[in-house]
């Protein structure tokens, strides 16, 4: 792959998915797109670039974008964001919403479903406290392939071991051969939808809690700022946004502010009250002051 071809792929991926690839990620492009070439009968990455340039083949375009998307995830990843949900965010949201008895949660980069299902498990564990409540978990991802896997809720031994307590494995999963499927009652709590965060998401409505973890790290600064601003629009007045450990809003937007007590937790910032322009004192007072 020549520099020109690599540059073309970088620009292509930036435009389609927001993925900001630095020059040292050349190896990643080669390792992830070579299987795509094989899948579509293309001999080299040069042929792939040539195809992308001249042909409008949505299957190849989609395969290229999805191959470059990182889908690393596991149940209760990093643990703290889920402890925070159970111990702080859920009780607070329930107190706020006691009138409507309705909660909306959005997992903005849900990947293969472990994050929304972790939240669904915590909601099921809350049990009787949520009886009569309408709780909706919206799970979105750029990749339709991972969304389909999420909908199925079927995981390998390896996947269910990563973060899922064994008691909940037995309680909420059924073993099917070498795999484990999450219970229908939990699957029905999650509404999967394909979504590219670069595009508008106003239609999703507003949410009490948004998880958007470990996805902004792949975007450049203007894209991060744009997405954060639009995520702020999707939060209710006292809504909560959770970002990944390596992500922040600082220096990117003044629409969101960090919660000083909980790392990775952000809320809608109070509107900035601009100091009024000083009004020139009457001439008479100036004269007094001058004495």
């Amino acid at each position: 792959m020549t520099e020109l071809e690599f540059d073309y792929l970088r620009a292509y991926l930036k435009q389609r998915s927001g993925l900001a690839l630095t020059p040292e990620k050349r190896y990643l492009v080669e390792s992830r797109l070579t299987p795509v070439c094989r899948r579509f009968g293309l001999a080299t990455l040069r042929d792939l670039v040539g195809t992308l340039k001249v042909a409008r083949d949505s299957a190849i375009e989609k395969a290229v974008v999805e191959a470059m998307t990182t889908n690393e995830t596991f149940f209760f990843r990093d643990r703290t964001p889920f402890d925070l949900f159970r111990d702080v965010l859920l009780p607070q949201a329930m107190a706020r919403r006691a009138g409507q008895r309705r909660l909306r949660i959005w997992c903005a980069a849900a990947s293969t479903g472990q994050e929304p299902y972790s939240l669904a498990i915590l909601l099921q564990e809350a049990g009787v406290k949520l009886a009569g409540w309408q709780v909706e978990i919206v799970a979105t991802d750029l990749s339709t392939e991972v969304i389909e896997k999420g909908k199925l809720g079927l995981y390998s031994h390896f996947e269910v071991q990563r973060g899922l307590p064994v008691q909940w494995l037995l309680k909420y999963f059924t073993q099917i051969g070498e795999q484990w499927q999450i219970a229908p009652s939990l699957r029905s709590m999650v509404d999967y939808r394909p979504l590219n965060l670069l595009n508008g998401f106003e239609a999703l409505g507003t949410f009490d809690v948004i998880y958007c973890r470990n996805v902004l790290i792949y975007f450049d600064t203007p894209t991060k700022a744009d997405i954060l601003g639009r995520l702020a629009d999707r939060l209710g007045p006292e809504g909560a946004l959770l970002l990944g450990a390596a992500e922040t809003v600082i220096g990117l937007t003044d629409r969101l502010s960090p919660n000083p007590q909980h790392r990775g937790l952000y809320g809608v910032a109070a509107p900035v009250v601009r100091a009024a322009s000083p009004v020139a004192p009457p001439v008479s007072q100036l004269r007094v002051a001058a004495r």
Partner: peptide, 30 residues
């Protein structure tokens, strides 16, 4: 890796369950 084996281990007093093969991430998480 079957449900019966896991349940039996928990009844005997195990706190968690690791299926072989495991790696650093899994062991750390457990």
């Amino acid at each position: 890796n079957d449900v019966g084996a896991i349940a039996r281990a928990l009844r005997a007093g195990a706190d968690e369950y690791i299926m072989k093969p495991f790696d650093r991430d899994i062991l750390t998480a457990k």
